[in-house]
């Protein structure tokens, strides 16, 4: 046996490295991932849309017990309690308008929560949470009622459950499929969440429609409906094109949508009514309670 020296193979002739270009594989895999995510999102949407309308309201109120302690903390101060009561009267009037038949009328509750944020939330179990920041900025009863009607729309459409169900299932699925700490699973989750945003934009405008209809039913005109979003639009600092990345549509967009709706339905616009005394009293109290809260924000 003799040793015969041989030259090493050229870089392109390396048998142990696949000859295909890395970017080629990258694109194929990324496409595959996008396809899988889209399929998951589609199937999930169908599943949740099928389950939610069939869900027993009692099961829903079971869900609500999870965050009940949080609400009770918020309700502790007497000022927010009087505010809650005043809001509940308004909500009951809206409910009576939406469901004239008393037997079919669902029991929904509204709670006032001391928080600087200008926001209101619809929660599972038929609860609406109004943050006092919103109340502090409200100038008219019409405006406040429109926001209440909007959240009521979410509850009636059961959007809160859809959102909850989707994000829950997606989170579990992403974890099960891609492993717990895999950074691709983080990316998958993010893109699933972004897909979900477009879903909730559709829900928002449906809820806006219901809020508007209720407003007109109560006052006979649509005055004050756009005031809330107009104010938000003025405060909004992010440029409009960024609104695709946020949960809610840009306020200016919603104002335009509402105005188009008002024109299409030929709703009249008349002067608005000031806030009721009970709510005003609460507003004063909550500002006292939280002196540096709202004054500087306006």
């Amino acid at each position: 046996m003799v040793f015969v020296p041989k030259e090493p193979p050229a870089a392109t002739e390396n048998v142990n490295v696949s000859p295909n270009h890395p970017l080629h594989e990258f694109l194929i895999l990324l496409g595959g991932l996008a396809g899988v995510l889209f399929l998951v999102w589609l199937l999930l949407g169908l599943a949740v849309d099928w389950i939610v309308p069939n869900l027993d309201p009692r099961a829903e109120s079971q869900l609500a017990t999870i965050y009940r302690p949080l609400l009770e903390v918020g309700d502790a101060s007497p000022t927010t309690q009087t505010g809650s009561r005043a809001l509940q009267i308004e909500l009951d009037q809206l409910l009576a308008l939406q469901f004239p038949d008393k037997a079919k009328r669902p029991a929904y509750f509204v709670h006032l929560h001391s928080d600087e944020d200008v926001n209101a939330l619809a929660l599972p179990g038929g609860h609406i949470l109004v943050l006092s920041g919103l109340l502090a900025q409200a100038e008219s009863e019409n405006e406040l009622l429109f926001v209440l009607g909007h959240e009521l729309g979410h509850l009636i459409h059961r959007d809160h459950l859809r959102g909850l169900g989707r994000s829950l299932v997606m989170y579990t699925l992403a974890n099960a499929l891609f492993g717990n700490q895999n950074f691709v699973s983080g990316m998958a989750e993010n893109s699933l969440r972004n897909l979900q945003l477009s879903f909730s934009r559709g829900q928002e405008s449906a809820a806006d429609q219901l809020g508007l209809a209720l407003l007109v039913k109560k006052y006979g005109h649509a005055g004050g409906a756009t005031v809330f979003f107009e104010r938000l639009a003025k405060q909004e600092k992010s440029p409009r094109f960024l609104s695709y990345l946020t949960t809610h549509p840009h306020p200016q967009e919603r104002v335009e949508q509402l105005q188009a709706l008002i024109q299409a339905q030929a709703y009249a616009i008349k002067p608005t009514q000031p806030l009721s005394k009970a709510l005003k009293a609460n507003l004063a109290a909550s500002q006292e309670h939280n002196p540096d809260g709202q004054s500087e924000k306006d």
């Binding site: 890395p22 990258f26 895999l29 990324l30 595959g32 891609f178 895999n182 691709v184």
Partner: peptide
């Protein structure tokens, strides 16, 4: 690493 994580799925 990124390509490999994707590959890990498929």
């Amino acid at each position: 690493l990124f390509v490999a994580s994707l590959r890990n799925m498929f």
